Simulated assay, not measured.
Amino acid sequence: MKRTPLTVRGAERLKAELKKLKTEDRPRVVNAIAEAREHGDLKENAEYHAAREEQGLIEARIKDIEAKLSTAEIIDVTKVNAQGKVIFGATVDVYDEASDSEVTYQIVGEDEADIKEGLLSVNSPIARALIGKEEGDECEVETPGGLRRYEIVEVRYQ
């Protein structure tokens, strides 16, 4: 079975979403289905069909999260001795030559990635280029916008 890397924060977020789906969303939609059934003919009952569709989406998301958590390898970067190297979970400040600016990324699991939040998928070209490097190292990354050069300014494990 393939293990999926997940940060501690990412695992906590998934567990919180799962709890909400099971304790709030699922009961709410079950009540909505029961209420819609009371309105009579189900063939032309839009509320019933909408609630059933929502129930299907909730159940699918619950299964998805449970599957992810069952294969997750939760990595606490604060407990790993990476000796200054960029590893999964590390937060990295890099200088981007093309934009002449400093950018901060945290290397996270595929499901946690959100580039707007600076959460970079471990499978992305930038993350793959940074992993294993340390402060002061440079790397080049082929991006859709062309070749980018980065210099690692700082590596943190938080």
Rank of each mutant, 00 (worst) to 15 (best):
E102L: 04
T78N: 08
A90T: 07
E140M: 12
S101Q: 12
V108D: 12
E73K: 13
E142N: 11
D114I: 00
A129W: 08
Q106S: 15
E102P: 01
G84M: 02
E138D: 03
E102R: 15
T91H: 00
K79I: 02
A98H: 05
G136F: 06
V86R: 07
Y105T: 01
V122A: 10
A127D: 05
C139K: 10
I126N: 06
E135D: 09
E135F: 00
V103W: 13
T91V: 13
G84C: 04
G136V: 03
N123A: 13
G109W: 07
A72E: 09
I75L: 13
L130S: 09
D93K: 13
E134M: 11
V77H: 05
I107D: 03
S124Y: 04
I87K: 12
K133D: 12
A98T: 10
D76V: 08
E102H: 11
V141W: 13
N81Y: 05
E110H: 09
V92K: 04
V94G: 08
G118Q: 09
A113R: 08
Y105H: 12
E135Q: 15
T78V: 07
S101E: 10
S124C: 06
V80E: 14
E140P: 01
L120S: 11
N81Q: 13
Y105V: 00
V86P: 14
D114Q: 04
I131E: 03
V77R: 04
E73I: 00
D137W: 08
V141P: 07
